[in-house]
């Protein structure tokens, strides 16, 4: 608490002011003894996470599976980047970080949960989350570092596994996806009827190869090697 500020403290109130100041400080100290903050803090971080992060299945229920898969790939990459931030920016692994880690794990799990191919990863994340909760009770920097490394690895695994799920975007309208680079399109197959987000169609064509029957496959960086980029 900051010291109270009264520019015109009258002499007759100096003593009561000191008494009240002391009383207020002791109240805060007593409150600090009364209650752990972990539950309340984690509840807020989670409630916000569930409110702001749409459930992928509900969000994309009416969308073609290709839209859902590509969107999940994008999210999974963002999640992996998120979990890498403390590492790359040298953030201290303090207690304060733990609820954020729990929240990030929850987001990563949400991404994984509704994909059959990713259920194993979702299960791993389910196991990692209670571990992270435990750390909020008795945090040790080494435990946090370990949990963070696990979470980062799991998030990368999700992104990797999602990349292994075949995505057939033939004739699908992908224009609603917030796609800024080709990274999340690795291996996606498409046709001339496929609609792309604005500004990226040329890039996709330049980085795709024909695979027959009017279909193409996105191979970022690979197309030029084979000198057979899509001509559509």
């Amino acid at each position: 608490m900051n010291d109270p500020k009264d520019d015109d403290l009258p002499p007759e109130h100096v003593e009561i002011d000191a008494y009240l100041r002391d009383s207020r400080r002791k109240l805060t100290e007593r409150l600090a003894d009364e209650r752990s903050l972990d539950g309340g803090l984690t509840a807020i971080l989670h409630s916000d996470s569930s409110a702001s992060e749409q459930n992928p299945v509900r969000e994309w229920a009416d969308q073609p599976i290709a839209v859902m898969l590509i969107s999940l790939r994008i999210r999974a990459r963002a999640s992996a980047r998120d979990l890498d931030l403390p590492h790359s920016r040298g953030l201290d692994l303090t207690l304060d970080f733990t609820p954020a880690l729990v929240s990030a794990l929850a987001r990563a799990r949400d991404i994984a949960l509704d994909l059959d191919r990713a259920r194993d990863i979702a299960h791993d994340l389910d196991r990692a989350r209670p571990r992270a909760y435990d750390l909020t009770v008795s945090p040790r920097a080494s435990d946090l570092a370990s949990a963070l490394a696990s979470a980062r690895e799991l998030a990368s695994d999700i992104a990797h596994d999602l990349d292994q799920v075949p995505v057939d975007a033939s004739g699908v309208d992908l224009s609603s996806i917030d796609l800024r680079d080709l990274d999340a399109l690795q291996g996606v197959t498409w046709t001339i009827q496929t609609r792309w987000p604005a500004g990226i169609a040329g890039k996709v064509r330049a980085n795709s190869v024909p695979i027959g029957e009017g279909r193409y496959e996105v191979r970022p960086g690979g197309a030029t090697k084979h000198s057979s980029t899509a001509r559509v």
Partner: peptide, 27 residues
């Protein structure tokens, strides 16, 4: 500038300010 930064910044605010805030409301 990221979701995680936001969580970390808020967590620090919450932990540093919770008890003073409760005391404030009690006063």
């Amino acid at each position: 500038d990221s979701e995680l930064d936001r969580s970390v910044a808020f967590a620090a605010f919450y932990r540093n300010g919770w008890h003073d805030l409760v005391a404030f409301v009690m006063w």
